[in-house]
Write a protein that binds this DNA or RNA. Structure first.
Length: 163
DNA sequence: GCCAACGTTGGC
DNA sequence: GCCAACGTTGGC
């Protein structure tokens, strides 16, 4: 049974369509310990991800992706020319991790943040908690399934019997 | 562009 | 260990 997650990206920076074009990407640049710890301790190969577009109008879930590596050192932390450089990261203590993800499918219909907020079924979902801003979140199976359904996808096909 | 919420840093 | 200052996130 795969783990279920939501990962945020600004579409101007790296949209779901970019992931589809590239076929796979390093999820680099995570500089938050909670998010790092989820990649380190929580994520496994085969986990499914709701790919969320933040800082756009309206914010929305755009697609489904799959985790295809365990967490491993984020090399951009040790690159002085990188926007994500962290002088405290060293080869001995890389400090920050990333995973690779690959696209599974775009949603037939994007599911907007507003639609999620308006649906009482999503009560309790981290995404709509006030003030939360974690870029990687765990998603409950019934919430994940509901997003797929609202997005016009075959939830059973993607999740099997889960939830 | 605004600003609330939150995490991190660093002086003490 | 406290906490003020600061930077970032991200919806609106």
């Amino acid at each position: 049974m795969p783990g279920l997650w939501l990962m945020k990206s600004e579409p101007d920076v790296y949209a779901f369509a970019d992931l589809v074009r590239d076929g796979r990407t390093h999820w680099d640049g995570v500089r938050n310990y909670q998010a790092r710890n989820m990649m380190r301790d929580g994520m496994s190969v085969g986990d499914l991800v709701l790919y969320y577009h933040s800082n756009t109008t309206p914010p929305h879930v755009a697609g489904v992706a799959r985790v295809c590596t365990e967490g491993y050192p984020d090399h951009t932390a040790q690159d002085p020319t990188s926007h994500y450089h962290d002088p405290k990261a060293t080869p001995e203590d890389p400090r920050w991790l990333m995973v690779d993800i690959e696209p599974v499918t775009a949603l037939a219909e994007p599911v907007s943040l507003g639609a999620i907020k308006d649906d009482p079924f999503f009560e309790g979902m981290l995404l709509i908690q006030r003030g939360q801003r974690l870029s990687i979140q765990s998603v409950a199976p019934h919430h994940f399934r509901r997003v797929l359904e609202l997005g016009g996808l075959d939830a059973d096909g993607l999740l099997g019997g889960q939830a």
